[in-house]
């Protein structure tokens, strides 16, 4: 009886030591799940999910504090990717969060008073300009997050949908008669 207890205890200690050792030896820096989720998110840093940026949202998803349908810029496909990554069922967007066509911000340079409020709002430093000087959007860096629109005191920022051009045109999914009916 006693020997059995001792053996079991010894095994438990040995296994515990192995586990403990493995935990230290194979320790993964940071939270890999957060990074994986963050890699799927579109990095607009728009805050439409209710979190101050993509990484915080990723952290919240990883912690199970947020659902995966809070990211309109990611679109339905983003939800699908998150669902695949996390092994859960995809859920549709809620009522007011709906994806919009991708757009970039545009500053009407005649109206801009150079207040720098939009520069402070921009999460990716895509607005160039200084105090009392006209500001300009660096279109290539703009993620279309719309965070600069609200702070502007003179409403000179508008969101322009990205138009399809030859350079960004994509081949369509082929639709042919029987497929359309199918």
């Amino acid at each position: 009886m006693l020997s059995a207890l001792l053996v079991m205890a010894a095994i438990a200690i040995v296994l515990g030591a192995v586990l403990g050792f493995a935990a230290i030896k194979f320790r993964v820096q940071g939270n890999p799940l957060v990074d994986k989720i963050d890699a799927v998110l579109p990095q607009t840093q728009c805050g439409q999910c209710g979190f101050p940026g993509c990484k915080p949202y990723a952290t919240a998803i990883a912690a199970g504090e947020a659902t995966i349908n809070k990211c309109p810029p990611g679109g339905e496909e983003g939800i699908q990717k998150l669902a695949d990554l996390l092994g859960v069922d995809p859920i549709p967007f809620g009522g007011d969060t709906q994806p919009k066509p991708k757009s970039v911000a545009f500053i009407d340079e005649n109206t801009c008073i150079g207040c720098t409020l939009c520069i402070q709002a921009c999460p990716v430093d895509a607005i160039a300009g200084a105090a009392k000087q006209m500001h300009t959007i660096v279109a290539a860096e703009c993620t279309g997050c719309e965070l600069c629109v609200a702070p502007c005191p003179v409403d000179c920022i508008s969101m322009l949908p990205i138009e399809e051009q030859i350079t960004n045109w994509k081949w369509r999914y082929p639709v042919y008669p029987i497929q359309a009916a199918a």
Binding site: T44, Q45, K55, E141, T143, K170
Partner: peptide
């Protein structure tokens, strides 16, 4: 179709990575 989707996605990924980098720097 698949080729141009893949290219577009790679481009989107590059843009997202750059945005992430710029955001983190900011």
């Amino acid at each position: 179709f698949a080729k141009s989707e893949i290219r577009a996605r790679a481009e989107e990924k590059r843009n997202a990575d750059r945005a992430r980098e710029r955001h983190e720097f900011r």
